[in-house]
């Protein structure tokens, strides 16, 4: 157990190392001027000497490989450099916002996970009947609405006309911070995040379950007199879980980081905006840290999904343990 955990950790480090190399080089190979994010408009008026000095200050004057080695050495000491735009340590920049993102994206993810499961089961249960058709149609319709438009409409209705909910920010400025205040601020952006992702996953779990429903063992389960509920939950749902978990695991960073539009419209201080801006304005250090963070998150989520899958499906474990699978073409 300790041995496998150690190996897994080594794999994680190695993957992140390769990821860092790739991102570092790609970021620097794409066109754009990193100085703009630090000096702003002033860059255009700089003389070549000034420019050279500025580049030296930001450590951008040597070759890309040298820059990378330096970055790597610093990174080992826990120094990830400063953000050009915010002129602070990247960890500080991120530290301010990561909590907000986890609250919006993390809770949103839980809602998506549970909600799509519920809707998917409902659809599969009433396959080809009214509830199924309704949910699927509604999903198609909602998925067609652009996120920013949906956000604006929600703001218009609930914030401007009804004045029930605040239109922007993560909390009201000027009053004492309270949980209730945060929740009020979260409702609208959360609705948009969940509505944007929910249907896709619900549809996927519906199809995963229906795939199981068509298998022979379900026919046998029926033939032995089991009730539909037991077949659905004990057999079908359980067997779709490995695939569902794998998909959801990959979607964690997607949902967490894919909140750019929502954050922009609601002026919500999260990481989504940060990721976008860092890539757009060549804020190299920030970009590196954010990319590696999401990369590590993907890998960790996948590992978690694998561990869970092994617990659910004994075949996966035995394959990983190196037992000869049966039914190979002998």
């Amino acid at each position: 157990m300790v041995k496998t955990a150690g190996r897994k950790f080594l794999e994680l480090l190695l993957s992140i190392f390769f990821l860092s190399v790739i991102i570092f080089y790609i970021a620097r190979l794409t066109p754009g001027d990193p100085l703009i994010s630090y000096y702003g408009e002033r860059v255009e008026k700089m003389s070549p000497e000034e420019r050279e000095r500025a580049e030296e200050r930001l450590g951008l004057n040597s070759s890309v490989s040298n820059q990378y080695l330096r970055w790597l050495a610093d990174a080992f000491h826990g120094e990830f450099g400063i953000s050009y735009k915010y002129k602070m340590d990247v960890t500080e920049v991120i530290g301010e916002r990561i909590g907000n993102t986890f609250i919006l994206g993390g809770i949103g993810f839980l809602f998506i996970f549970g909600g799509s499961l519920l809707l998917g089961i409902l659809c599969a249960w009433y396959e080809d009947r009214l509830p199924d058709h309704m949910i699927c149609k509604m999903g198609t319709a909602v998925s067609c609405i652009p996120e920013f438009w949906l956000s604006l409409i929600l703001i218009l209705i609930f914030a401007v006309n009804l004045r029930w909910l605040p239109s922007s920010g993560a909390y009201t400025i000027g009053i004492k911070r309270s949980a209730a205040d945060r929740i009020l601020h979260l409702i609208l952006p959360m609705t948009v995040v969940v509505a944007g992702h929910l249907w896709y996953y619900a549809y996927m779990i519906r199809n995963l379950i229906l795939e199981e429903v068509r298998t022979d063992y379900v026919l046998l389960a029926k033939a032995k007199g089991l009730k539909k509920r037991r077949i659905m939950f004990r057999h079908c749902l359980r067997n779709t879980f490995p695939s569902y978990l794998s998909i959801m695991a990959v979607s964690v960073p997607h949902i967490l980081g894919g909140t750019y539009i929502v954050e922009t419209v609601f002026s919500y201080p999260g990481l989504g905006t940060l990721i976008y801006e860092s890539a757009r304005y060549k804020d190299y250090n920030l970009l590196m840290f954010l990319s590696l963070m999401s990369g590590a998150l993907v890998i960790l989520c996948n590992m978690a999904a694998q561990v869970l899958n092994e617990r659910i499906d004994p075949r996966i474990k035995s394959e990983n343990m190196g037992k000869a699978p049966e039914g190979i073409g002998l």
């Binding site: 990983n320 343990m321 190196g322 037992k323 000869a324 699978p325 190979i328 002998l330």
Partner: peptide
């Protein structure tokens, strides 16, 4: 001979 992980082999 088919070989599998962990030195499991099957003489087919």
């Amino acid at each position: 001979i088919f070989s599998f992980p962990k030195r499991v082999t099957v003489k087919a």
